[in-house]
Design a protein around this nucleic acid. Structure first.
Length: 120
DNA sequence: ATTTGCTCAGCTC
DNA sequence: GAGCTGAGCAAAT
């Protein structure tokens, strides 16, 4: 993954994406997930060619708790995964508020979108 | 459904 | 630089 940067003097530089870059990109992607849908850590990770755990880490760091809907990111098998602010219980409640069905601690398949669908 | 082994970026020392 | 720790994954059981 690379980023293209345009400097003030109009020079263009291409460099490998730094951790900070990736973090921003991940947040941007997550905020694209619509209400009533969720996406997996893995889907995001494979879009960017990074490890799913790194995506999870970025969620945990989470600068902007409300603005970035990290509750819409779940495990690839539908299990909830974690949530730093209140745990799974809160995460599940938030999802329910958005009309996402959670059964036995798992999000139903129909709500899970792929990376491709996200980029539509 | 549950256990097991793999993973790799970040954190700590 | 080496070792530990996960908001995970996938295969085997």
């Amino acid at each position: 993954m690379f980023v293209i940067e345009i400097k003030n003097d109009e020079r263009i530089v291409v460099r490998r994406a730094s951790t900070e870059d990736l973090k921003e990109i991940v947040y941007a992607l997550v905020s694209l997930v619509p209400m009533g849908k969720v996406i997996s850590y893995k889907a995001i990770a494979s879009l960017l060619g990074i490890h799913p755990r790194l995506v999870a880490r970025f969620m945990a760091l989470n600068d902007k708790p409300i603005i970035i809907p990290c509750h819409r990111v779940v495990m690839s098998n539908g299990s909830l995964g974690g949530y730093s602010r209140g745990g799974k219980v809160v995460k599940e409640k938030l999802l329910r508020l958005e009309c996402v069905n959670v059964v036995n601690g798992k999000v139903l398949k129909e709500h899970i979108i792929s990376g491709d669908e996200l980029l539509n």
